[in-house]
Each structure stands twice: as structure tokens, then as C-alpha cells.
Write a protein that binds this DNA or RNA. Structure first.
Lengths: 202, 202
DNA sequence: ACCTGAACACCGTTCAAGT
DNA sequence: ACCTGAACACCGTTCAAGT
């Protein structure tokens, strides 16, 4: 028999398996050989559906980027649309702990990869920001969102030395950090969005 | 002879060599074996001065963190001290392209590693922020700085497909991005610092 | 005390061979 | 068209041996 009689391999099945494996065991534990084993197949079979490990990682990233929700329709204030987009970004990062690492190590130029960027720029444009200001607003907002998540990840990983319980007080010597992560995130998000709104008015 | 007659190996020489190698060829190209070769020594000799590759990476990160300048003395407004610290962070990231990647992959709890965090928290405290607000201000500021650099790195690397010249217009479909990176950085930095200052006033 | 060389258990990937 | 198995050039690291 060819592949133990299971449903045949496909790019989708390979990518799904890779994402699941990275979610559960971390990106460092993901190897072509181990992924193949978990799919009940030999390592080299993967190369029929994915040209290289780099392509596998890019495919995983694309799958995650597709999960971003950046509302474009009417019925929402531009700040609310960006707030929704930022929260969606945070959610994807929580669901897929390798998201940020993939984002910063794989460089893809497909349509689905650039769509979120184009969407956010579009929102700033329609809000009234001119070319360069739209770009700077984009960089400020995305910078904050990306950095906050990164920072929390560092804190979380650093925590692992203290056992499973999150009651580790000195964490990063930040008093009261992590008590309400969502509120912490929105504190800075409001700071940036309100600052941008003020800039737009005057 | 023992090591080709050169100056003897030491932790300092090993770390310096590793940082230089990562600066020039990227973190991915840094292996114990290649580092040893460049130091004119056998791979296993490194283990006399560094217990593991993870320890090597942590040591490199510590060396970079020591280069951060966060002024604590008087004669400066608290926003100016933070502005200086943020700019210093940007400089270290430019000098050592692996800085951010090391920061997010190595978790160290030594004094020199936590000093910058403590310094920034201290500045917010002395400016008048209470416990939780100081932490949130810290997260907002560091989040922005970290994320902006990350974002620029992604953009820069993405550029590599267009050749050496930076005249690649569509980059990340950001109009006018990269024309004045320092000004772009300060745009968001001011946004955060001015927002925090306003919050402090009431 | 420090450096070496062989060895082990891993990697990603090529290539010739099978069906 | 797709899967396999052996092979190649790499990894980090252990261990026994050298000086």
C-alpha cells in the first residue's frame, strides 16, 4: 500500500498538520520528519505537496493571516474598525503562538498576505489621512500591536521558570502586570488611536 | 600545539566572535562548528567557556542589552529620558540585526538583563505614574518601540527581492515608507509619549 | 585545565527507484 | 502522479582520550 490507506496527502492536509503541530509543540519542534511521521507518511512524501520547509512555513503564515478580521463596511467608526482589527490580530496571535515568529521570519508577497496591510491603510485613507500620514499612522498602530504581543510572549515564556501557575510576582518586575491583559492591551491601543484622532482634527 | 598559538579562548572571545558572526551573516548562519572554525579552534573547545548554544545566545543578548542607554540623572525631562532610551534601543537593533530575535527567543533573568526594564519603570514612577499605570505606560512604550523595529525589519527583509537598491516602490504597499525612517519612528514615539503626558495631567 | 577526535541522534534535501 | 529508502551534508552535544 502507498500511505497506510488513510486519506491521501494534500497541501491542505500538510499545512493543517503543520499548524496544529506548531500550535501544540512550538515551532522549534516542527521538523519535516516529525510532521511526516504524524501524518503517517515518509518524510519525502511531503515534498510532493510543498517545495521546501520555507514554503511550508510561508503556507502556515498565510493560513493564519487569512484569519484576520479587518471590517471594511460602513456602520463603524474608523477607530472602531481598527480596534476590531487589532483585537483580531491579538486573537490570532493567542490561537497560534508561532504567529509573530512566522510573521517576522517569512516574507511573502501574495495577495492574501498583503490584504491586511492594504485594508488598514485604506481605513486611514478614508478617515482623512494623506499619503505619508497614513503610512506613519499605520506604522504607529501596527508597531504598537505587534510589540505589545511580542512583549507579552516574552513575559509568558519567561514565566515558565516559575511553574504552571501564573502567580509569579516578579515576572519582569512589573507591578500588577498580567492581572488584566486585555485591559493592558486596550490602554495602549486607546493611547495610539486617540492620539491619531487628535492629530486628524488639528 | 593546543590552539594554533593564538590568544587563548575565553568566554569574552567566544561571545565577541559570536556577536560579530551574527551581525555579519545572520543568526541562522551561526553554528557552534562554524564559530569554532572562525576562532581557529575545534567545535568542542567552545564548551569549555560556554555550557550550551542556548547559553551562547543568552550571553550575546546580555552583551547587547548592556549597550542600552537609559539616562537616569537629573537635567532631563522624563519624556526626554525615555526618548533617549527609545532611540538607544533603535540604535542597538540597527547595530545588531539579531537583537530583536534574541530578545524574543532567549529568556534571561540576570541583573543586567532586567536593569533596562527597571530603569524605564523607575522613570515612569518618578514622573508620577502609580503602580499599574506605570506598568501599562511601560507596556505601551516598549510595545511601540519593539513593534516599530520589528515592522521595519520585516519591510527591509521583504525588500531583498528587489535587489540592493531601496527604490522598490511597492515594498509593503506603503506610500512614502522608508523615506525618513527616523522621522517615522519619532512620529509614533511622540504619539505615545504625548498621550502618556496628557494622561498624567488628568 | 583546556583542547581534540570519534561518535550519536538529529536535521533538510537530492536522487534513483518503485507503484 | 505520488510514495519510498538510501544517501549527503549539515546540526548540537556526550564521552573518552590526550596534553
Amino acid at each position: 500500500m502507498s500511505h497506510a490507506g488513510q486519506t491521501p496527502l494534500s497541501r491542505t492536509r500538510v499545512l493543517d498538520g503543520a499548524v496544529r503541530m506548531a500550535d501544540q509543540q512550538g515551532l522549534a519542534a516542527l521538523s519535516m520528519r516529525k510532521l511526516a511521521a504524524e501524518l503517517g507518511v515518509e518524510a519525502m512524501s511531503l515534498y510532493n505537496h510543498v517545495p521546501s520547509k520555507a514554503a511550508l512555513l510561508s503556507g502556515m503564515l498565510e493560513r493564519m493571516l487569512e484569519q484576520l478580521e479587518i471590517p471594511s463596511g460602513p456602520g463603524f467608526d474608523w477607530t472602531d474598525r481598527l480596534r476590531h482589527g487589532a483585537t483580531s490580530f491579538l486573537l490570532v496571535a493567542r490561537t497560534h503562538p508561532s504567529f509573530i515568529q512566522l510573521l517576522t521570519s517569512q516574507h511573502i508577497h501574495t495577495g492574501t498576505a498583503l490584504a491586511p496591510t492594504a485594508a488598514v491603510i485604506g481605513i486611514f485613507r478614508s478617515a482623512g489621512f494623506a499619503d505619508q500620514d497614513a503610512t506613519r499612522a499605520y506604522q504607529a498602530l501596527v508597531g504598537y500591536v505587534l510589540g505589545f504581543i511580542l512583549q507579552q510572549d516574552v513575559g509568558t515564556i519567561g514565566l515558565s521558570c516559575c511553574g504552571q501557575d501564573e502567580s509569579c510576582a516578579h515576572r519582569l518586575s512589573l507591578p500588577g502586570a498580567g492581572a488584566d491583559p486585555a485591559a493592558d492591551f486596550e490602554f495602549g491601543l486607546d493611547l495610539v488611536l486617540l492620539g491619531l484622532a487628535a492629530k486628524l482634527r488639528g
